[in-house]
Design a binder for these strands. Structure first.
Length: 419
DNA sequence: TCTGGGGTCCTAGGACCC
DNA sequence: TCTGGGGTCCTAGGACCC
């Protein structure tokens, strides 16, 4: 029988920090989101202190100080590079893996030959930990949904970090004690709805009438019923280019004037365009938005967004920046303190996509060559070596990032030093 | 004081057509 | 006086993921 394996890094961002800083072993460690806002990765020691996932840092200040928790700002360049190393290592054993997120990948067993799946996976896991320094867990099951559950058990229960849920008829016992909200694809809203229908555990969902579930929820949960029964509805997905690309960030401090907002927007747009060209796409349109801080309900709130279509799809930063700024000037209202803005590149098409247009000139060879040159220089000399003046120089909107570790693997000046 | 960012998929409902 | 039904396409918004 074909099986799915979910390979997942343990406490990924924290584990990355530990690779180059062994003093952090066995200590409580957390990593923050952008702007040092929320806690998005926790070591086991930090979890034991009761620090919840996603909690704002300021609400955990007491626990953090009392227990000397190590706190790191996010360092995505570094984590991204470590992720590449882990995935490339996995690919050596399983060439057709589906990279599901920065720290997880699905593998299907018919793409590799195993003598004994369990034993072989234990060996793969050992090798990857040795090569990358990142601890991982592996869940084995007949469907993706079940492999998620198996992975969960592997993390908690077994010392080898590998668990096969299809062995020894343990699946039902595990599901009997698993609240529906902990299933992959169900969260609070659906959980409530299911409980309302009399379904509160994974096992009860598995034994429900699939059509009944679909009628009262959606096709997604109908699929899940079958997946829990061991009938695969979800397969390994091949890598496809993104359909939209987004770049947005909250400002380090709230901003009332339009100029710094335009600078921030230009920077986000430039970043989005780099991602766009990297995946060899062009955008047919853009959406730009702005908003005040929704947590300050006692202050006047404003949020708005506008979209625009280009005559022809483009990946030219200059065209996109100009259009974005024009949209923003239309959105901005004086008298508010703004907290966040962003841009989404819409309806992406392959960059070799050609369509004749009588009047538009925004898709010339010159433009493409110009952007390629800019990207090449920034790749070689470092991000932002060349930038647009409209991104500004003072950058008062720049996000907070007070405890970032070194970019050990991607920046010469920040390599680990051994004395 | 301080509350992330970047995605995907599905559904309902409106506009429009014949 | 009595005013259809069925289909498609698009969009906005909701829900979920990590």
């Amino acid at each position: 029988m074909k099986k799915f394996i979910l390979a997942d890094c343990n406490n990924f961002y924290v584990s990355c920090e530990r690779v180059f800083n062994p003093l952090l072993d066995k200590k409580p460690v957390v990593v923050l989101s952008n702007n040092d806002g929320c806690i998005v990765s926790r070591s086991d020691e930090a979890k034991k202190l009761g620090i919840p996932m996603g909690a704002p840092l300021y609400q955990q200040k007491d626990v953090v100080e009392k227990n000397k928790v190590y706190v790191f700002s996010s360092n995505y360049q570094f984590y991204g590079d470590m992720s590449d190393r882990v995935m490339e290592s996995l690919e050596m054993f399983a060439p057709k893996l589906e990279i599901y997120s920065i720290d997880e990948a699905f593998i299907k067993t018919n793409t590799i030959s195993f003598d004994d799946i369990f034993k072989d996976v234990v060996n793969i896991r050992k090798k990857i930990i040795k090569w990358t320094g990142i601890p991982m867990s592996f869940g084995i099951a007949p469907t993706k949904t079940l492999s998620k559950i198996a992975n969960h058990i592997a993390k908690k229960r077994t010392y080898e970090g590998v668990f096969d849920i299809s062995e020894n008829n343990v699946a039902n016992d595990i599901m009997r004690n698993l609240p529906v909200e902990e299933l992959w694809g169900i969260s609070n809203k659906w959980g409530k709805k299911l409980r309302h229908l009399g379904v509160s555990t994974a096992l009860e969902l598995k034994n429900s009438n699939a059509k009944f579930i679909r009628k009262h929820t959606s096709v997604l949960l109908e699929r899940m019923v079958y997946e829990l029964r061991g009938m695969p509805c979800l397969d390994i997905e091949s890598i496809s280019p993104k359909k939209n690309i987004m770049s947005s960030k909250s400002f380090g401090t709230s901003i009332a004037e339009i100029e710094p907002i335009l600078e921030a927007l230009s920077s986000y747009a430039a970043r989005a365009c780099e991602k766009l060209r990297k995946q060899n796409s062009k955008a047919s349109g853009i959406y730009v938005f702005i908003r005040t801080n929704p947590f300050h309900q006692n202050k006047p709130q404003y949020k708005n967004g506008h979209a625009l279509n280009f005559d022809l799809p483009t990946s030219d930063s200059r065209v996109i920046l100009c259009a974005a700024r024009r949209l923003m000037r239309g959105l901005y209202r004086k008298g508010h303190k703004y907290h966040k803005c962003g841009i989404m590149l819409l309806d992406l098409v392959p960059d070799n996509y050609k369509q004749a247009h009588f009047f538009s000139t925004n898709d010339s060879e010159d433009q493409n060559n110009f952007m390629k040159t800019v990207d090449r220089i920034n790749n070689y000399m470092g991000p932002q070596t060349l930038f647009y003046l409209s991104q500004g120089i003072s950058k008062e909107w720049k996000m907070k990032c007070e405890n970032r570790s070194n970019r050990y693997t991607t920046k010469w000046s920040e390599l680990l030093e051994v004395n």
